[in-house]
């Protein structure tokens, strides 16, 4: 479904600030995979998501979605294939438009937008039905401006919108990190529910190791622009945060040793 082959990305090449954000990333997701990605700050997690969504072009390597090489497609040209939820709850919705208008925009993901009416009675019925899944009462507030919703409500709406028109890949970039624990829990639960119901192929970046272990069927750990650990469902099962930290120390120690050898 999603394949990254030897993807490299360097920021500010040739300057003192040069940073190799991705080094030869190889990643393959099968249909229906729900992969959580963890790693320290600057490990390259967000860069991977941006390379998949098209926000960043890789220096080398290819990105294939659903058998289609999309490496050189800009972000808005890939939007038909990729749904995204950002870390910032404000980023995924248009605050001055109403809930139903935001839904109408999501409904037309990747399609040509012409002079058809944005919100029709038929669409409104579908939106109401979809929104009721969130159990936030938003289905009764279709005409409310999204800017009036709380952060948690907006993020739940962003999630619904991102998954509404059946993307091939769902990218979640620490989408619960900016919420208080209770709302984060709610959005996590909704994420699992929606992803499972629709069988979405999902890549979720998170800072929360416990969440990374609990959610999804596969776990990837990144460090310094590389994938250093890739656990499938069986390997993941029964692991604890302590185990993960142990693995991390072990691998990090090894790379440190390598560097020492090279110097």
């Amino acid at each position: 479904m999603l394949t990254l082959t030897d993807v490299n990305k360097t920021f500010f090449p040739g300057t003192v600030n040069e940073r190799r954000a991705l080094r030869g990333i190889e990643l393959h997701l099968s249909e229906g995979d729900f992969v959580t990605v963890i790693g320290s700050n600057g490990a390259g997690k967000s860069t991977v998501l941006n390379v998949i969504s098209g926000g960043l072009a890789p220096d080398s390597g290819t990105v294939t979605i659903d058998g289609r090489n999309v490496t050189r497609l800009k972000d808005h040209r890939r939007a038909a294939l990729v749904g995204r939820v950002f870390q910032d709850p404000m980023a995924g919705t248009a605050p001055h438009l109403s809930i139903e208008e935001n839904m109408a925009i999501a409904d037309k993901r990747g399609a040509t937008r012409m002079l058809g009416r944005g919100v029709t009675h038929a669409k409104r019925r579908r939106f109401r039905e979809a929104l009721s899944v969130l159990e936030l009462g938003l289905e009764n507030r279709l005409k409310a401006k999204v800017g009036l919703l709380s952060g948690g409500q907006r993020q739940a709406l962003s999630l619904l919108m991102a998954t509404f028109s059946d993307p091939r890949i769902l990218l979640l970039d620490e989408h619960t990190a900016a919420l208080d624990p209770q709302r984060a829990e709610l959005v996590t639960r909704l994420t699992e529910q929606i992803v499972t119901d629709q069988g979405l192929t999902t890549l979720m970046v998170t800072h929360n190791m416990e969440q990374a272990l609990r959610v999804g069927n596969r776990l990837v750990m990144m460090h310094d622009g590389q994938i250093i650990l890739d656990l499938d469902e069986e390997q993941k099962c029964g692991k604890t945060v302590r185990d993960l930290l142990g693995e991390f120390e072990k691998i990090k120690g090894a790379t440190l040793d390598d560097k020492t050898l090279l110097q």
């Binding site: 972000d75 939007a79 990729v82 749904g83 980023a91 995924g92 248009a94 990747g110 919108m161």
Partner: peptide, 10 residues
């Protein structure tokens, strides 16, 4: 209103 958002919808 939100350029990043609308780009992500194509």
């Amino acid at each position: 209103d939100n350029e990043k958002m609308i780009r992500s919808y194509g």
